[in-house]
Nucleic acid binder design. Structure first.
Lengths: 191, 191
DNA sequence: CATAAATGTTAGTGACTACTAACTAACATT
DNA sequence: AATGTTAGTTAGTAGTCACTAACATTTATG
């Protein structure tokens, strides 16, 4: 709709992801958006308003449930792969916001709360999936909550270390990481 | 040795961990250290010098090799537990610096490079340990490098999510996380 | 007690910060 | 022809930043 607004929002998000909310100035954002500083204040009430607009525009709220009820085929390897891919897809969509949430975790605690809330929801879904798999005798008797947490933690570890450090040694492992992780869990969890 | 210097360094590290290098002011640091702003500049050349002194004082360089050659008992469960505990111990010692490294990753890339370097070294040690275990027929034939990376990524995921968000849902899992993770790997990797 | 070192106080520098006001230019719509 | 919209320009406010200089006061040490 509004081209200038978009340019400003993009520049703001990109710079805040890079340097953090506090450390980036309106002047800097204006320069990167190739508009004058004044134009920024014409489009957005103040710095906080600009940030909140950027959040609203670039945060992708997940809809785990839908995927969970439709895409499940009750094969551990296939399902865990789908779940992991969905997780990475979502986190990559929200990468900028995730990075800002980390940097400003004491300044904007709401951001972190949102992430925690969604992670908790995802954990619950995985737990209930594991329980169903146990009932179907396709998964051994084990502490499903612990397994769900370990699985999510592993995905989180991979995502965050690549998101934080793009030139990371993990980058050469993008494909094989997922395959080997799923294999590890299937090996251990299969009935 | 120097009480005032220590007070300033402590306050600086604590506040930089909380808000980042850029966002914390000398005035703020002085107030928290209960000294006047001038005293800070009497003890340290400038803000960067203060930061570098804090780094020097509060960074704990690991000595993985020693632990690796002495503590290994060639039992997968015992050894992985020791490795994980050593990893968490080290990361907790360097927690403040780790958090600053994240927040200022584009401002002080050297910090991240140090972390990467040490992680890479630890990975190599685990890989060579896995290879030895295979030679001893105590571990199945598998991509040991992938396994080492997944193991480290899982530990990293747990550590970073607890370090970033202290009120995290993972906190109730501190003990059982390690046990279950080791079990998962042993289940899958044992010969 | 006397001297010296460490610290505090005050005032100030120049640069930068978020943000505002007043005015102007270009262009599209009515 | 009148008006609305969107943008730029210039100048300015009031506050903060890192950092310095000069001088007063406290504290430690001989």
């Amino acid at each position: 709709m509004n081209k200038t607004s978009n340019k400003i929002l993009e520049a703001a998000l990109r710079l805040m992801e890079e340097k953090g909310y506090q450390s980036v100035s309106i002047k800097e954002i204006a320069e990167h958006a190739q508009v004058s500083e004044m134009t920024v204040f014409r489009h957005f009430k103040n710095k906080l308003g600009l940030f909140e607009s950027a959040l609203e525009k670039y945060s992708y709220i997940p809809h785990f449930e839908k995927s969970f009820t439709t895409d499940i085929v009750w094969d551990l390897q296939t399902d865990l792969t789908h779940i992991a891919e969905a997780y990475f897809h979502l986190m990559n969509q929200n990468k900028s916001i995730f990075l800002i949430a980390i940097q400003e975790r004491n300044h904007f605690p709401e951001l972190h709360e949102t992430i925690t809330k969604h992670t908790l929801k995802l954990k619950k879904l995985i737990v209930s999936y594991f329980k169903s798999m146990q009932e179907r005798n396709q998964m051994k008797e084990t502490d499903v909550e612990a397994q769900a947490i370990i699985f999510l933690t592993t995905l989180f570890g991979f995502f965050s270390s690549t998101a934080l450090w793009e030139s990371h040694f993990l980058h050469e492992w993008k494909e094989s990481f997922l395959i080997n992780t799923i294999e590890l869990f299937c090996d251990s969890l299969k009935q």
